[in-house]
Design a protein around this nucleic acid. Sequence first.
DNA 1: CGAAAATTTGACATGACTCAACTGGAGTGG
DNA 2: CCACTCCAGTTGAGTCATGTCAAATTTTCG
Lengths: 191, 191
Amino acid sequence: MQTTAIISFFDSYLSLDETEKEELINRLRERKIKRRQFILQENDTCKHFTFVVEGCFKMYAVDKNGYEHNLQFAAENEWIADIESLHKEKPSHLYIEAIEPSLILQIAKQDLWDLYNLYPKFDRNFRVIIENKFIELQSRVLQNISSTAQERYTTFLNQYPNLANRLPNTQIASYIGITPEFLSKIRAEKL
Amino acid sequence: MQTTAIISFFDSYLSLDETEKEELINRLRERKIKRRQFILQENDTCKHFTFVVEGCFKMYAVDKNGYEHNLQFAAENEWIADIESLHKEKPSHLYIEAIEPSLILQIAKQDLWDLYNLYPKFDRNFRVIIENKFIELQSRVLQNISSTAQERYTTFLNQYPNLANRLPNTQIASYIGITPEFLSKIRAEKL
DNA sequence: CGAAAATTTGACATGACTCAACTGGAGTGG
DNA sequence: CCACTCCAGTTGAGTCATGTCAAATTTTCG
């Protein structure tokens, strides 16, 4: 099992000691995911927290007209889950789909809860992890309510250069909340 | 000091035992805040986490044209802070201002950090608190990228009826990312 | 190589903003 | 308690930003 990435991920927070590492690893399940494969679909209940070792995912909602709206991407060393569905154990209204062939490590809800109870350090680490995600989301909301599509696009390019050059523009358009046609026009103007 | 609200707030998560209550209360500072008074201004570093006992606040950014964009409201039994500024101890680009005469309880960053280290339950509780805030924010992002102004407005009314009837429409417009004039037109159509 | 998806382009439609003027009500000071 | 000011809300005309639809072209992946 590929565990170096996830261990060094935790090292960037409060490092795990040997027992904690072992207890974590015992609860992880490694999976290979093909391009276009789903790890969560609408109406299913989200049962795992997923750590991306290799590859890239998108999480999105589908509106009444069938259009997708990207809420989040997750590439190497990022966590992804529908937290609401996971916590409240209720059916998700989101999809999580692999954009590239990927390798992931999953931990089941109950196993994570057990870790929280056995080793408070996991509470601490996940608190800080989600605080950082919260800060990121908040700055995205600010962008959404205060900036033009043009500005949101260039901000995206600057903020996630590594994502920008491996994602199709359609996916970026969906993430910043505009149509692919309009993004194409924005890009044409900039040259 | 008015501590019943904050204690029963924690009771809705993992209840605090007597020691934890006492240690928390010892670190709280009660303040009365007038309407239009700031508890955080741009370029100041956010030094406290604030619990609202009574009243209402808005947190917002000001753009280059001088317009305000509301990121968050906080009324009774809610927490508010610029988490980024607080964590990274860097100057904030946000304002937190009282919309109504208010009563708050504040805990300084270092005191909160001490509580985290002394009693892991605080890590747990704040993890869950922020997870819930994250879920809320995420559904707001989804709204922003997938819905029209009309829809965002009615969603706001349904989601925060108690806020909606104590806030001026200008503030709601700023929160959902449209101009006050346009909100006025939306409201005129609905009748 | 071939099918499916991504990208581009243009004409047109609509959503949302700007500016300016006007109205009414709420807070403030005398 | 009154008079005043100021801010929230409304309305309309004109403009700009963004969406829609359809078609043609290019790229990507199996």
